[in-house]
Structures are given as structure tokens and as C-alpha cells.
């Protein structure tokens, strides 16, 4: 446990002195927190005009808008999309950290002394994964709380209750950390197989694709995310996490990393 803690502290000490990583960790949450609040403010200022818009578009939102005015429905719709975006955040943030974790050490030539210590592969990888996951999840939760408080001030209680349904809280506080671990395991796995940090980062970023499809699906009305979908995603991701963490350890070949990379 002490060795895992040491790796975590080492990763944080190193990573947070890297401006690129700091930018990645700070920029996305700032945008994702500010954007919905600005959009809500703008929407509220045009709410008078929205009331006169044809109710035809209400059909598009389906059961999500039952019993709501069109303006409220638009707000709920937007808040749902943005909440969904908060599930992308913890996947996007740690990819840079995790992608650099193995391949970055190798290019800096610090991996060999590290592997020469009596540290097991599990300790090393768990340390690196946790070091990448914790900031991502913490920043996501913090950004979400700021966003939620801002929304509470800007929308009425009905809209707020719809937008902060337990389903979304489950998504943010339980499914998001699982998604973070998924992204990090993939990034660490890719990072221990490729020789360039940029390639590791780009390949690992592909994990975001299914989530983007989910956002697009919800935006265009193809999918209406409900409790069942969130629980299903949670279960699938939890199983995938177990498999990927196991594979990360199995695919981490000390000898190949030391001898094939120049």
C-alpha cells in the first residue's frame, strides 16, 4: 500500500508541474461549467419569445417534457445534454495523465530505475491508474456541483428537479468514476504498448467516442436516457473495468518495454 501511495504522490508531483496537463485538467471543466450556465442565462432572457414558439417541437422531447412549458422543456433538455457532457469530462481529463504515465517515463528514461526497485506490476499500475483517476473524478464532481448550484439559481424548481433527477446523480457520482477507470485502464494499456506519448494519448482518446455518440443520440432524440440505460451503462462499464485492469497488468511486459523501445 505504501508503494502505491508513493507512486500516486510521485505522479501528482510530476504531472501537476506539467503545464500541458494542468491546462487539460483545468480547461475542460471550466468550459463545461461555464457553458451551460451562460446558455441558461441566454435562454432565460429569450424565454418570452420561446413561449410563442409552436408547440410542435414538444413532440421531439417526448416524455421528458410532460407537464412542462416549452421554455421549461428547453431548459430541461439543455441541462440533460450538459449533464451528459459531465460524463465525458472524467474520461477526457485523465487520458493525458495516464497516456504519459508509462510511455512518458520511458522516454524520460526514468522507467528502468523504477522497474529495478522491488515494486510489483500491480502496485505500479494501480498507483498510476489511481493517480490519473482521482483528479479527474474530483474535478468533475466539483465542476458538477458548481454547475448544479448555478442552475438552481437560474431555473425554476420544476426544471431543476427534472434536471437533477436521481438518475443523473447516479450517472455523475457512480457511473462517471467507473468510466474514468475505463479510460485510464485503456490509456495505461495503450501507453505500455506504444512508444510515443502522443500516439498513446490519441489512441486512448478514442474511449470518449461511445460517450459522444450517446450525447449526439440524446441531442437528436434517437435515445432518451433513462434510469435503465444509466444502470446498464454502469454494469457494462464496471465489468469492462475489471477486464481492462486485468489486461493492463497482463499486457505490461517489463522486458519488452525496456528492450524494444529505443
Amino acid at each position: 500500500m505504501k508503494k502505491i501511495q508513493t507512486i500516486i504522490r510521485k505522479e501528482w508531483a510530476e504531472v501537476f508541474k506539467n503545464r500541458l496537463v494542468l491546462f487539460t485538467v483545468a480547461f475542460l471543466p471550466l468550459i463545461l461549467t461555464a457553458l451551460p450556465l451562460i446558455t441558461l442565462a441566454l435562454t432565460n432572457s429569450f424565454s418570452g419569445e420561446m413561449e410563442s414558439v409552436s408547440t410542435g417541437s414538444m413532440d421531439f422531447f417526448g416524455e421528458m417534457c410532460q407537464g412542462l412549458s416549452e421554455a421549461d422543456c428547453t431548459n430541461v433538455y439543455m441541462l440533460n445534454i450538459y449533464t451528459l457532457m459531465f460524463m465525458i469530462l472524467p474520461v477526457a481529463i485523465p487520458v493525458t495523465i495516464a497516456a504519459y504515465s508509462i510511455v512518458g517515463e520511458k522516454t524520460a528514461r526514468s522507467l528502468e530505475p523504477l522497474l529495478a526497485t522491488p515494486i510489483t506490476t500491480v502496485e505500479l499500475l494501480v498507483g498510476k491508474m489511481v493517480a490519473a483517476c482521482i483528479p479527474a473524478v474530483a474535478v468533475t464532481w466539483l465542476a458538477f456541483l458548481i454547475y448544479a448550484v448555478g442552475a438552481w439559481f437560474m431555473v425554476n424548481d420544476v426544471v431543476f428537479a427534472q434536471a437533477m433527477k436521481p438518475m443523473w446523480l447516479l450517472a455523475i457520482f457512480l457511473v462517471s468514476p467507473l468510466l474514468t477507470l475505463l479510460a485510464v485502464s485503456v490509456a495505461v494499456m495503450v501507453s505500455s504498448r506504444v512508444t510515443d506519448p502522443r500516439v498513446a494519448e490519441q489512441l486512448s482518446a478514442l474511449v470518449i467516442m461511445p460517450l459522444i455518440l450517446l450525447v449526439v443520440g440524446q441531442s437528436v432524440g434517437l435515445i432518451l436516457i433513462n434510469e435503465q440505460i444509466i444502470v446498464l451503462i454502469g454494469v457494462i462499464v464496471a465489468v469492462a473495468d475489471g477486464v481492462l485492469v486485468y489486461l493492463s497488468v497482463k499486457l505490461f511486459q517489463r522486458e519488452a518495454i525496456l528492450t524494444r523501445w529505443k
Partner: peptide, 29 residues
């Protein structure tokens, strides 16, 4: 690995960390 010491071909230090921090990490490991 626990009973031998190795100086690798290149020092492989953590450049962004202090000398103290570099050694503390390895002493713990």
C-alpha cells in the same frame, strides 16, 4: 531487486522533482 543497487546507463531522474523528492520516492520503494 531488493538486495542490489543499480545505476542505469542514463540517470533517469524525475527532472521536475527535487533531489530530496527523487530519493525519497526510491527509498520508500
Amino acid at each position: 531487486r531488493r538486495s542490489v543497487g543499480i545505476l542505469t546507463e542514463t540517470p533517469g531522474l524525475y527532472d521536475r522533482l527535487s533531489a530530496w523528492r527523487n530519493l525519497t520516492i526510491f527509498a520508500t520503494l
